[in-house]
Computed example of a mutant assay.
Amino acid sequence: MNKKERLEKIKEILKKRNISSQKELMEALREEGIYVVQATLSRDLKELGVIRQSSDLGKRYIIPENAINVASLKDLFHRVVVSIDFAENLILVKTIPGNAQAVAFLLDNFLNVYDYFVGSVAGDDTILIVLRSKDKTQEALEKLEELRK
């Protein structure tokens, strides 16, 4: 099986099943006759843009859609964003643990239409948003606060 076929199989499994760890995904792939080492699987997940998101069933791997869904972003903001703070041209968004990467992915797609948005970096529960200048910080904060309403 080549890489393209393996990536397609990973997408298929993640859409059908609630997978919460790489080990679990490796087992699911083995059931399909696909043997892969953890390092390769990790690279595949990164290439597919897979993120680990909390859900009613616990944490699970998902492949976010490329198109931003503002309703989904608002819903996620309501559920997981704890606080928003800033300094100069930097904005810090705190989430409940395990959700920062999902929020950052959606924020990147939501804010990338604004020329003042440079990008974001996410950890487990913290997102750092970088703006081109401090002059646009208030505008960006207003957009983020609007998502929380």
Rank of each mutant, 00 (worst) to 15 (best):
E145K: 02
M1P: 01
S133W: 10
K15H: 14
I19P: 10
L76D: 06
I62F: 09
L131A: 08
K46G: 03
L128D: 04
D108S: 10
K74I: 03
K3F: 01
L14G: 12
E88A: 07
N69Q: 12
D125H: 07
V36W: 08
Q138K: 15
L92F: 14
K94E: 14
Q22V: 03
D124A: 09
D124T: 12
Y116R: 09
Q101Y: 03
E65H: 07
E5A: 04
Y116G: 09
I63Y: 04
I19Q: 06
Q101A: 13
L57K: 14
M26E: 11
K3R: 15
E65V: 01
S42F: 06
K4Y: 11
A39K: 15
P64E: 11
E47F: 03
Y116L: 11
L45E: 10
M26V: 04
L90G: 02
A67W: 06
E88C: 03
L45Q: 05
E47P: 05
S42I: 03
S120H: 07
L48F: 12
N89W: 10
S120W: 10
D124E: 15
G119K: 09
L107C: 03
R43M: 05
V50L: 02
V121S: 14
R17T: 09
K46S: 11
R60W: 00
S72G: 06
K94D: 11
L41G: 00
A104R: 12
F105P: 03
E32W: 12
A140Q: 01
K9N: 10
L107S: 08
L57A: 08
N2M: 07
L131K: 06
I63C: 08
R79H: 04
R43A: 04
I19Y: 08
G49I: 10
L111N: 04
S133T: 15
N99T: 04
